[in-house]
């Protein structure tokens, strides 16, 4: 079932003194329930503009974005329903949780705002959410964000995103601020949740390696245009577009590096 549709979306910014900048140029793609799409691109490729359009910080100059067949509503009950179905996981787990509030508060609010469970069951639901992201509710529930590690915070942020039982998760570089050794854990958690709940996930990243393993399909963006798309392994292992090839060649790849006998100054570097 088609969950999210980008239909010929263009976004043009007027820049004072510099005319216009086309951040997105005729971008179209669809995302099905239970599917993960990796949006790969460098800074300025337009991938963050897509996130901004989805979170309504920006509106497309032309084209349409549809969730479940409906255009993004501007206000009222439709907007509420849209927000309930689409949730964000932000890049920086230090900044995305309010330092003043407890973990319990962070998870309780979406439950109450969208009336997910009756008030009497809120506490149990908060605990269930924490367990879902592999955190011990007894330990973390009444802590404040600064008492947790980066990885724990990002898990809390994921639990918060899941609280309203959304259909689509937009994950904007969810692991790039985390230590290398815990990235895989967080990505595996996201993959598990996605499989179990049939979530659609839009994974926005600059990192080809995680995009390849975490996504079903990859869209490569360059200067606002989709230059290549396809199944994740195809795009990364057998890139067709010159820009994708360039990205792939520039990304660290120890397997290829050590397979070639050329050594440190050989072709790979």
């Amino acid at each position: 079932m088609t969950l999210l549709e980008f239909d010929a979306v263009t976004k043009v910014y007027a820049v004072r003194g510099a005319g216009h900048i086309t951040a997105l140029d005729d971008v179209s793609f669809t995302l099905r329930s239970g599917q993960t799409i990796g949006l790969v691109g460098q800074s300025g490729s337009g991938k963050s503009t897509i996130a901004k359009i989805l979170t309504q910080l920006e509106t497309p100059t032309s084209g349409e974005v549809r969730l479940d067949g409906r255009a993004i509503p501007r206000r009222g009950a439709g907007l509420r329903a849209y927000r309930q179905q689409l949730r964000m996981v932000f890049q920086d787990p230090f900044a995305s949780l309010n330092p003043y509030h407890s973990i319990r508060y962070h998870l309780q609010r979406p439950l109450r705002l969208d009336r997910i469970v009756p008030k009497s069951e809120e506490d149990a639901e908060v605990r269930r959410l924490l367990e879902r992201v592999r955190l011990d509710p007894g330990v973390v529930i009444d802590r404040r964000p600064h008492e947790l590690s980066g990885g724990q915070r990002q898990r809390v942020a994921i639990a918060r995103a899941l609280a309203s039982r959304p259909k689509l998760l937009v994950a904007d570089e969810p692991v790039s601020m985390l230590d290398v050794s815990i990235r895989l854990g967080v990505l595996n958690l996201l993959a598990d949740l996605q499989r179990e709940e049939g979530l659609g996930v839009l994974y926005i990243t600059h990192d080809l390696a995680t995009a390849r393993h975490f996504s079903d399909e990859i869209l490569v963006l360059n200067q606002g245009r989709v230059v290549e798309r396809g199944p994740a392994d195809d795009v990364i292992l057998n890139p067709q577009h010159p820009y994708t090839q360039e990205l792939r060649a520039a990304s660290p790849d120890p397997d290829a590096h050590f397979a070639s006998a050329s050594g440190i100054d050989g072709g790979a570097l």
């Binding site: 990235r183 895989l184 393993h213 975490f214 660290p252």
Partner: peptide, 15 residues
């Protein structure tokens, strides 16, 4: 083993 490999098979996200 903690990082996903660009072309290799190890370090997979378990899906």
């Amino acid at each position: 083993s903690s990082f996903p490999r660009l072309t290799g098979e190890k370090g997979m996200v378990l899906r």
